[in-house]
Design a protein around this nucleic acid. Structure first.
Lengths: 227, 227
DNA sequence: CGGCGATTGTCCGAAAACGTACACTAATAG
DNA sequence: CTATTAGTGTACGTTTTCGGACAATCGCCG
């Protein structure tokens, strides 16, 4: 069922439990899927595109703490028996998702322990992603964090072209825009990527992995738990 | 029951469900409560002292991503239907905990939805803490991150004296040791802390909060969910 | 009391990232 | 086809942090 990593791995019964509530929706660029401190109304199982979870300090600009694509879902707070989170989630690269009301999800995971377990396991891999972001932010330089981000985005799209601007990337990483431009050029010089206007093409994944030291842990955890 | 923030807020029945399995243990400095990639054998509900969750890059030194004290528990991965995590958890400031086998916890949370919900809610506040660490690591300078760490530690101890060395703090924050010494002196000059050998005394919590811009979100979330 | 190890203070040059400004260039609209 | 604008390249001095070294100091043990 679906091209979503969580849904496609559900058992037949769990699948049937959700199906009546799922509705296909488009995810236009910039659409807000969750707002900080506001009740979560809908859960999105992404099929295409990328959403960012962004933390804002009290006064200052935000920084991305998590990335969600076709492997995952939004609204983990609901799975964790909460109903909101202090962070914002919005569409970074347009796509589609299957959407369902949070209240329905809450009921379904009470009915099916295996369904709940699936969501919790994804939640665990997301937790590892958060920790890995904290590690990267604390110990890696821009070039390395950029490589990590590109790899994570690459995992979540079709093809090798990631369409976004340096400006956006800078916002995500919480650094200056010229810092991103410089780092990208370094990666290009090493033959790891190519740059077009508004787009980056991944040409050497393995090379990027060597550059980015913090990539891999969440991905390994996801695979361990789902395969 | 107990001085642990989670346990003390459980309902009577949930309490009785856990009590037979809990055993009081000492937490000596440096004790490893979880090892990266290894099966989690025991869950610890801290009563006193502080444990650190540390992420290590493949080759390099680690960095702290989370802090656990009397408000919380270790072994969240088990609650998330996993059995291990890629990160290490060890005792940073000695204390005591109530300890139970992971297998028992797994069974109890299947028996009691309300018990599971309690753990999940704590898990949510911990997720927010991870995100907040990622924010601080990405956007704050050493002095600000240090203020945040001191506040988080202060929340988890009795009194105002935090006993540890600059060296340890540097490891936690993922920065150089002299960087910590310098930042501490800045905080001392502002009258926010006092320094003894191997110890730091908090003298102005509110002042520290002003310095540390990333403090507060996880704490607010914990309070919202538990009170 | 003297010595020793652990802890902290201080300094150096170098690297990384900052904030800001401005020129250039490609896509787009009129 | 030109004018406009978003996106990118580049440059400046400054701040922050790094990596490493070394001196000073404290607490403890013999």
């Amino acid at each position: 069922m679906s091209t979503n990593g969580i849904l496609s791995r559900l058992s037949r019964p769990d699948c049937l439990l959700l199906e009546p509530h799922l509705e296909k929706v488009r995810l236009p660029l910039g659409k807000r899927l969750e707002r900080p401190g506001r009740r979560i109304e809908h859960i999105y199982f992404l099929q295409r595109g990328i959403a960012s979870v962004v933390a804002d300090g009290p006064d200052e600009r935000g920084i991305e703490v998590g990335l969600i694509g076709r492997e995952g879902m939004t609204g983990l707070a609901v799975v964790m028996d909460s109903d909101r989170s202090p962070y914002e989630t919005f569409v970074q690269i347009e796509g589609e998702a299957l959407c369902m009301p949070a209240s329905n999800l809450r009921k379904r995971i009470e009915e099916s322990p295996t369904l709940r377990a699936s969501f919790l396991r994804y939640g665990h891999s997301f937790v590892v992603q958060l920790a890995s972001t904290a590690l990267a932010n604390g110990r890696s330089k821009i070039e390395e964090r950029l490589a990590r981000w590109l790899l994570m985005a690459h995992d979540r799209i079709d093809g090798d072209e990631i369409a976004l601007t340096h400006e956006l990337l800078a916002l995500m990483l919480g650094v200056r825009r010229p810092g991103v431009s410089d780092a990208l050029k370094l990666l290009e010089k090493r033959g790891l990527i190519q740059m077009d206007r508004r787009a980056i093409v991944i040409s050497d994944r393995e090379g990027l992995k060597k550059v980015s030291r913090a990539y891999g842990a969440p991905e390994a955890e996801y695979q361990r738990l789902f395969d």
